[in-house]
Design a protein around this nucleic acid. Structure first.
Lengths: 204, 204
DNA sequence: GTCTATACTCTGATAGAC
DNA sequence: GTCTATCAGAGTATAGAC
């Protein structure tokens, strides 16, 4: 009782992830608006009615998808930096983890970042909150680096985060597997850019 | 005779620009799919029928909008660098011009960059061609800078263009007038990033 | 929990008078 | 060139049998 409005009825986690992964792939390929609930259902080997049993509306499915995407992204970045003692190396790995989320298999993070305009009203507000929480993860990391003197003191940390993540996010719009540049190429390039411009000279 | 498929019937340029500007504002605010032709017509003080006289379909309107946006962007960047002899200063001004296109008044460039997924088939191909032409403008500029020894020789120019423009493009997703950062703040930040990382040390 | 069938709404496009 | 009126199609959400 007291279940939140627009929230999915509780179902097995595996099932939920399966449905959301299928939906994410379609949303990424075609966009939220141009994807029908029928298509999503078919991709899950279901019929529209069954999908409706899990999600009361197409919008609620998107919101839940974004919730899972945020979890994925946070976990992925956290995992990438745990056990790494060198703070500079931490930053490098976090950048690569974020990039991998965008160009790798997970369509959900892509949808989280690019399909927020499809939401309205309170669903949109909730989603903006989700995105902010992911950004806080980064803000915290950068502040920690700055406190250790790793980032040059004259650098605005918020701008660094916004511009850096933005540069990576945009990669998702042109990257394709087997293209001219690999994820590694791109990660290295961005890393050198940031290292040369904002990391304090110690030993590099 | 020989008029291209999906192209608008010729109308006064001023009228065309007025319609497209209104459409661009709506597309930017709501997205292409969630904007109805009725809304566009109302924003132009017209009725849907009148709009249909100019454009046979909603999609053809979007394509024409993107054509105009490309012109605007190309002109704006070209204008920003003409008469500037210092190649480094050229690059700085071009970056600022691109940024201004995104955060300034023109919604059309935003639509050009973010709404290409709304197009299908040959319309999409044409639009991709348009975007490529704008990128060529930048590629040419960077090659010229490299030839003059301004850009460090070990820098991949295509990646520099993709990452640099990407960082700027993403700004459009979070920038808002009167917010924490002005367009100038952002332009300066990106400029320092690029200058420190890829511009050959001469006198800086 | 899943299925079939359908109601209802919205919207892009059109026809044709003026 | 612009208007009114309308068609045809699509798609979300729902109802209710099983």
């Amino acid at each position: 009782m007291g279940r939140k409005k627009n929230q999915a009825t509780p179902v097995a986690e595996a099932d939920r992830a399966l449905v959301l992964a299928a939906a994410a792939r379609l949303f990424r390929q075609q966009g939220f608006d141009r994807t029908t609930v029928k298509e999503i259902a078919e991709a899950c080997d279901m019929l529209p009615g069954s999908l409706h049993y899990r999600y009361p509306s197409k919008e609620s499915l998107l919101v839940d998808l974004m919730r899972l995407a945020l979890e994925q992204a946070s976990n992925s970045v956290s995992l990438a930096i745990t056990g790494v003692s060198d703070p500079v190396e931490q930053l490098r790995r976090a950048l690569n983890a974020h990039l991998e989320l965008l160009v790798g298999g997970s369509d959900m993070v892509y949808v989280l970042l690019f399909e927020w305009r499809s939401l309205r009203g309170e669903a949109r507000q909730e989603m903006i909150g989700l995105r902010d929480r992911y950004e806080v993860l980064w803000a915290t990391m950068l502040q920690s680096l700055a406190a250790q003197g790793v980032v040059r003191a004259d650098v605005d940390l918020s701008l660094l985060r916004l511009i850096g993540l933005g540069a990576l996010n945009w990669v998702a719009t042109w990257f394709h597997e087997g293209g001219r540049y690999s994820a590694e190429d791109i990660g290295n390039f961005v890393w050198h850019l940031i290292r040369d411009a904002v990391i304090s000279r110690t030993d590099q």
